[in-house]
């Protein structure tokens, strides 16, 4: 019938115990030594797409157009005529504009990341300009370990395919999860806890408990 039958017929219990254990041990070791026999170069891979940090943001002016669309303004609309005189560390220091901004990002000031000379771009620590799309490089300047983990696929989350020979993958950039002005991951309500049979004995309310006991 099948392989095991032979063992059973012998009826010699201890012998078959030994055989069983041995065959299992051998099976296991074979499995774990199996190599990944994929020739790397020949395989075509699907792209890994990283979601863009987006273009430079536009500020809502509070006005709406006749058709109800919000009126927005580019940063340079204002900043071309106003210069940031002092290094601002918190929204509370501001007298006008960006007043409600929740800014909690270490010891940084606005100009640490925003280029005072070109408000449609960002500025790296060495003073070079970089477009918004390259925001991750800016973050990586300080957050090296995270950037390294991200590079190696162990930070930031992804969707799609683990095996990129079979399909594409989409990855987040930093700002999909972290607000650059307040990067700590926000608190949130968790998805509901398990409602196992009778788990209510411990921590859920009594009426819930009785309901499930009624059957």
């Amino acid at each position: 019938m099948r392989r095991k039958t032979a063992f059973q017929i012998t009826g010699i219990v201890s012998l078959s115990l030994l055989t069983g254990v041995l065959s299992q041990a051998i099976g296991t070791s074979q499995q774990s030594t199996e190599p990944a026999n994929k020739p790397k170069e020949a395989i075509q891979r699907f792209p890994v797409h990283t979601r863009s940090p987006g273009p430079s943001p536009a500020i809502e002016t509070g006005f709406t157009t006749g058709s109800g669309e919000p009126v927005t303004a580019d940063c340079s609309t204002c900043h071309a005529t106003r210069t940031n005189a002092v290094p601002v560390r918190s929204a509370a220091e501001l007298e006008s504009f960006h007043l409600g901004l929740n800014f909690e990002h270490g010891q940084l000031v606005c100009a640490s990341c925003h280029d005072p000379g070109n408000n449609e771009e960002l500025r790296l620590a060495d003073g070079t300009h970089t477009p918004w799309a390259n925001a991750m490089q800016l973050c990586a300047q300080c957050h090296g370990p995270q950037a390294r983990d991200y590079e190696n696929g162990s930070h930031g989350g992804m969707t799609g395919y683990w095996d990129t020979t079979l399909g594409p993958r989409t990855r987040n950039s930093c700002v999909q999860c972290h607000d650059p002005h307040s990067p700590a991951f926000p608190q949130m309500y968790p998805a509901p806890p398990p409602r196992d049979r009778h788990i209510s004995i411990r921590s859920q309310n009594a009426s819930d408990h009785n309901e499930r006991h009624s059957e």
Binding site: M1, K4, Q8, S16, G20, V21
Partner: peptide
């Protein structure tokens, strides 16, 4: 049942 089913003997 041994032989008819799958009897995980002796593990």
């Amino acid at each position: 049942f041994p032989f008819i089913g799958r009897f995980n003997f002796p593990i």
